[in-house]
Nucleic acid binder design. Structure first.
Lengths: 328, 328
DNA sequence: ATTTAGCACTAATATTTCTTAAGTGCTAAT
DNA sequence: ATTAGCACTTAAGAAATATTAGTGCTAAAT
């Protein structure tokens, strides 16, 4: 159990380090705590003993350890009211009633990325939760057509197909069958349904069913698993901790990696969740702050990614604000 | 006019520099040219005089100047037969008759990026050349619907609209009108046509025409001007010349910048065109190699972007190969 | 008239030494 | 428990030095 003063010192160190990006000295704090630097130093030593602070070298000031950040966000961080100017800008987006929810979300995260210099991600519902709403075909010429797939959450995918020597009527028959029989099926179950419910029927009623069936089969197997929107990736290049090109490459590759992104949308509770350093699964020096949102029609995850030395309070307040506005 | 030997020396220097990424010394060349390093040095001095070579400092070896590269690609570079293995892999893509052209293109450029560690870009036809093929609407619930726009080139865009208190029938009437009256119009002329040809009519026949008209108007004004596909952007981080974070940020921003991309699709002749260094309009240390392609149904530009110190012959042969295959 | 050997010269790079500044930890006095 | 004071550590910067890989130039050789 930390004393009150230790708590305050730790809090101060985390906040100063976030602000200045360099190790915090005892001298800097003693003014604020009205005691000598020696006193602060002995407190710092105990906090280091407890694994909450670290040194970069024997005679350096202290920086928060991963546990130190953890302790900070769990126990010390205060709720921060959003900057009025920031809030005003965000409100403009949400008060624009012509905008559809998903546009509000992406616009507001774009704004947050610009304001904070962090990176934002919106992860829509996965294909498991998207139900087929409708499919359409648009023929381009004799041998090419476009299949449009729309889900109940408003997610759209399209695929360009080549069908040699297949009559358009037969394709339309198939589309009608699909629209009649498997509307409302989760996207990721459609391939199975196609096989067991549609294939036998088109085998009977549709000419060239083999070719048509295969074409539609690929449409659904290629369906993107998740609607992903990453904004402000280049902001990573602004942070002083990321000046090593190899590291940057590593992070950029991670952000394009499906597994990483899936991990981000996993196992959250309904609050703002914070994953610091190694917990972020991206890079030891990064933090992911994220939250799920859920409305009548839609759900997903929004995440802000930045250096471990990130303005936790500011980001949390922004995410809270957005989550609230989305859910209304 | 350069002597034969000067040509050969310049060629050698460019190729060695491309291979090894460090200034080329006279010693390295004298073995190959069966003369002393002093002879090479005096030749190098003349080539520098002519502005074809440069030094990084007084006593360094030589590197090609921008003009040196230019001279190399215009006069010295030999046609290189593609590596058989590379060719085989690319052919698999183009021989797959189930793939639609645009998928062949993006897959083959993905492959090229992987093989070369450069960045590839496909720029589709701009909205000016895309003609409206069909629009569809899919209602999601009482107040939301999705508008799908398909062009004759197979380009698809969709937009989620919110229409409060508007009956679906009225929307469908509008869609039918649009489909009847302005199919075949270039995308970028649609907003005008909407105003002068559709607005007056829906004003007569459609209730709530004001709201519906505005909604559709935004659909077409938000239409992406160009179909852009960038592959292997992170490869930039692999090149030794790009180890400066600020420079990287600059390049990444350029690659997201519409103006830059537009410039890439501009004013080419029908061959493989090479823009070196400053000519690339991206960065003094980068080169863009690009070509237009044109088929019965589609056209666009494919470009490979890499360091100035790029394997020109290899990239040119690959682009030629792809262009040929596309156009067949 | 070229080519070359030889040598003085240059700049980058690495290594070493020194200095300074900003910190710490520890001890003994308060 | 707090603090003043001091010895000590390290990073960071500056200056001195050596090494290396290259050049340009000159005078002799072909």
């Amino acid at each position: 159990m930390l004393t009150k003063r230790q708590n305050n010192i730790l809090k101060m160190i985390v906040e100063q380090y976030i602000k200045l990006a360099k190790p915090v000295s005892s001298k800097l704090l003693c003014k604020h705590f009205k005691c000598s630097s020696a006193t602060i130093r002995s407190e710092m030593a105990s906090l280091e003993e407890l694994g909450l602070l670290e040194k970069t070298h024997t005679s350096s000031g202290r920086i928060p350890s991963e546990n130190g950040y953890r302790y900070y966000v769990d126990h010390l961080m205060e709720f921060k009211k959003m900057d009025l100017e920031d809030m005003r800008k965000l409100q403009i987006i949400f008060k624009n009633h012509e905008l559809v929810l998903s546009d509000c979300i992406s616009k507001s995260l774009q704004l947050i990325s610009d304001m904070t210099s962090y990176t934002s991600i919106v992860l829509g519902t996965s294909s498991h939760e998207n139900l087929l709403k409708q499919i359409d075909v648009v023929p381009l010429d004799e041998s090419q057509l476009i299949v449009l797939v729309v889900t109940d959450k408003g997610h759209v995918e399209h695929k360009n197909l080549k069908l040699e020597d297949v009559s358009l009527d037969e394709v339309k028959k198939t589309v009608n069958l699909i629209n009649k029989l498997i509307i409302g099926t989760p996207i990721d179950e459609i391939s199975t349904k196609l096989e067991y419910e549609i294939k036998p029927i088109i085998g009977q009623y549709v000419n060239q069913h083999e070719q048509i069936y295969n074409a539609f089969y690929t449409v659904f197997t290629d369906f993107q698993n998740q609607n992903i929107n990453i904004v402000g990736k280049n902001n990573i290049l602004k942070q002083p901790e990321f000046s090593n090109v190899d590291k940057i490459r590593d992070i950029f590759n991670k952000l394009e990696d499906h597994e990483t992104l899936e991990q981000i949308s996993e196992d959250d509770d309904n609050n703002i969740n914070i994953y610091i350093g190694r917990e972020s699964h991206i890079d030891d020096d990064m933090t992911v702050i994220k939250t799920k949102f859920k409305t009548a029609n839609d759900e997903g995850t929004i995440a802000i990614i930045g250096p471990k030395r990130m303005e936790y309070d500011r980001v949390v307040s922004m995410l809270e604000f957005i989550k609230e506005n989305i859910e209304r």
